[in-house]
Simulated scan of single mutants.
Amino acid sequence: MSTILPAEECGETPLRRQPTQRRSARRVERMLDACAELLDEIGYEALSTTRIAERAGVAIGSVYQFFPDKRAVAQAVTRRHVEGFVSRIGARFLAEDYGGWWDAVDAIIDEYVEMNRTVPGFRSLHFGDVVDLNMLDPVADNNTVIAGRLRGLLLQEYGLADSEEFDLAILIAVEAGDAVLKLAFRRDADGDPAVIAEAKRLIRGYLNRQFARASAS
């Protein structure tokens, strides 16, 4: 029934091989950190595996040991952004009491805004759409993958009725929110507060109408 991919169906890892030792895993993390920093400093077009290796303090062969090219490194950074985003939202859901799904939606937007402000590479890549609309999955576009993750969180926390209509509503909310929040950061490097507030009102209003329609049918 669902048209949105759950987490376990979101494509293959961009790694050529998984690091099996702690030392190798730390080296890969340094490469991802270096890539994220460079994306904010010089952008994707000027990014190269040589620059990633130099910033990470590793040999260029170490980069190619795990990644075939710069796109794969950026893809791994994007996946880290997604996992961090979902994890941080999940932590908020556990730590804070919300009056309902509408407050949870506000929290999701607040987390997106915070990551834009503080997480290296996020404002340059977001969820990979800047580089490739299929950065996260070869079949589903990036926002469809994100919608699937948020859909799972909302279903789990609020027991909303699962349906194709619910899937479509979440996907449209993600697409609309993504566009308006990007506008907020184009207008102001820290995110224009007025536009962020409008994004919350827009998504709340849209989802409220869709959920009310689903409940009535």
Rank of each mutant, 00 (worst) to 15 (best):
T20M: 10
R209D: 01
S24G: 10
E114F: 09
P68G: 08
A72G: 01
G99V: 06
G84V: 03
F185T: 02
D137C: 10
L15T: 10
L181H: 01
A46I: 04
P193L: 08
L207T: 00
R204Q: 00
T118L: 10
G128K: 07
A7W: 13
R149L: 14
L155N: 04
S215W: 09
R17P: 10
R201F: 12
Y206W: 03
R149V: 07
T13A: 13
I4M: 12
T144C: 14
G61V: 12
G100I: 00
K70H: 02
S124Y: 06
G84N: 07
R204L: 04
T49Q: 02
T20C: 11
L153I: 14
A140W: 05
R22N: 15
A72R: 08
L150A: 06
G159N: 01
N208E: 12
L125F: 01
S215N: 14
A173H: 04
V82R: 11
R149S: 10
A199Q: 10
G191D: 07
L5A: 15
H126M: 10
T13D: 14
S163Q: 12
D167L: 04
C35W: 13
D33A: 15
L207C: 05
A46Y: 05
T78F: 05
A107C: 00
D129P: 06
M1D: 13
R79N: 01
V145G: 02
V113G: 03
D178F: 03
G152Y: 11
E198I: 08
E45D: 11
A184V: 03
A179N: 05
Y44G: 00
G43N: 03
N116E: 13
V86L: 12
V77K: 00
M115D: 07
D33C: 13
V58D: 03
G84E: 06
G11K: 05
V174D: 04
I172N: 09
V145L: 01
R186C: 02
F66Q: 03
R22W: 13
E29D: 15
V86C: 10
G148S: 11
M1H: 12
E8K: 12
